[in-house]
């Protein structure tokens, strides 16, 4: 049992759990959409006084913030109790080879230290990458009216055309970044 928990979990199990979470939230009378929390955090910080978009009854989103806190705890549990000590993501050889041309070493953990080490985050380039990445995600998610959970999972499950268009956009942007911009940043 322990060994089963400690090894990486399969894609089908993950997909099954994610759809179950969506259904549980529907059953609780809510809808699965994680990026709504970013709007809520702006409102709590007082953005509603200046910008009308943030002037809403954020208390109705408290459940979603509690879900967010749970997600942080879940990440902690996964690392502390459910992962081996020296654990590296087993990505495809082709990806390792492509990334090595950009200066990334083969994975030694779940995230590249070239991007997410403390040392890197406090260099100017490293900080700009993390902050601009975050800005684009936050701006784009709200502009598109949702993120992966709201559009790719919830919206497409309801066969909504707007969500399908949004996911096409997710990939358009992702491909431009991966093949057009990342080689310029790291090449």
């Amino acid at each position: 049992m322990i060994e089963f928990l400690i090894q990486p979990w399969s894609w089908w199990f993950s997909g099954l759990v994610i759809s179950s979470i969506m259904f549980l939230l529907l059953f609780f009378g809510k809808s699965f959409g994680f990026s709504a929390n970013l709007r809520t955090m702006c409102s709590i910080a007082g953005a509603g006084k200046k910008v009308k978009f943030f002037d809403f009854d954020w208390k109705k989103q408290t459940w979603n913030l509690v879900f967010l806190v749970g997600a942080i705890i879940g990440g902690f549990i996964a690392n502390q109790f459910l992962s081996p000590d020296d654990y590296a993501v087993a990505i495809s050889e082709n990806t390792i080879s492509d990334l090595s041309k950009l200066g990334f070493e083969a994975p030694t953990s779940i995230q590249p230290s070239e991007l997410f080490s403390n040392e890197n985050a406090f260099s100017l380039k490293g900080f700009l990458i993390l902050s601009i990445g975050g800005l684009l995600v936050g701006f784009g998610a709200r502009y598109a009216g949702g993120c992966t959970s709201g559009h790719a999972i919830s919206g497409i499950s309801d066969l909504q055309i707007p969500s399908m268009i949004a996911v096409v956009g997710f990939f358009l942007g992702g491909l431009i970044m991966t093949f057009g911009i990342i080689p310029l940043i790291f090449g």
């Binding site: 601009i132 990445g133 975050g134 800005l135 684009l136 995600v137 936050g138 701006f139 784009g140 998610a141 709200r142 502009y143 598109a144 009216g145 993120c147 992966t148 559009h151 268009i165 949004a166 996911v167 096409v168 956009g169 997710f170 990939f171 358009l172 942007g173 992702g174 491909l175 431009i176 970044m177 991966t178 911009i181 990342i182």
Partner: peptide
């Protein structure tokens, strides 16, 4: 909006 999100996601 989706494309901007995708840029940041990648």
């Amino acid at each position: 909006g989706g494309s901007i999100f995708g840029l940041g996601w990648a």
